[in-house]
Amino acid sequence: MRGLRRYAPPLIWLLVLVLTAVYLSRLEPLFAWLEPDRQTVVYPRQSFVALLLQHAAIVAVAAALAIALGVGAAIGVTRRAGEEFLPLVSQLASIGQTFPPVAVLALSVPALGYGAEAVVVALVLYGLLPIVRNTLAGLQAVDRGVLESARGIGLSPWQTLLWVELPIAAPAIMGGIRTSVTINIATAAIGSTIGANTLGNPIISGIVNGNMAFTLQGAVLIGLMAVTVDSAFSRIA
């Protein structure tokens, strides 16, 4: 019962998101009122459910890669063997964040061509930054006395990492993952401009054709998705 209570908010948001995706087209009269001069007021090319699933898949793949790479890199540079890369990596992580996401996308197209792969790569690069930064901060904040006693009583380096450092740093790491995923849910929409199918499709199409209704439909679904994911993170972190 307590478990259900705890996870109720994200589950409710998820339900709202799915119902909206499924039934958004039924709100045609509302959109017709918004754009009275248009024949088509509901984005016609793909179903919202299909776009939502593709959008989610791109974000999920990018998040999985960013977590593996970001947490891995931060662990690597805080070990003795990788310590010379620590200044470089931590600087990249803080400078990189000031880079606009569109620029990252624009850079990945020449490398990978149009399509979902280029979007995933851009999202991974962009999503790495908060994860690396937070994981570094979390690991570096572990008390030196705790580390010394961990070694001193005979934990191996692996055991120290898995039993002590990562659990203590976990809240910081989760915070970084949360920021990363939330940003990338929004950023993935821009992927539509380079040929990936995402919830950005109706937004871009709405902007290009001057059709507010399309833009609103994409924006509402992206907003709901971001809220759902953020709410889920607030329960587990």
Binding site: G145, V146, E148, S149, A150, G152, W163, I168
Partner: peptide, 8 residues
């Protein structure tokens, strides 16, 4: 050790 180094 001095500040115990207990795992928090």
């Amino acid at each position: 050790i001095q500040n115990t180094g207990l795992f928090p």
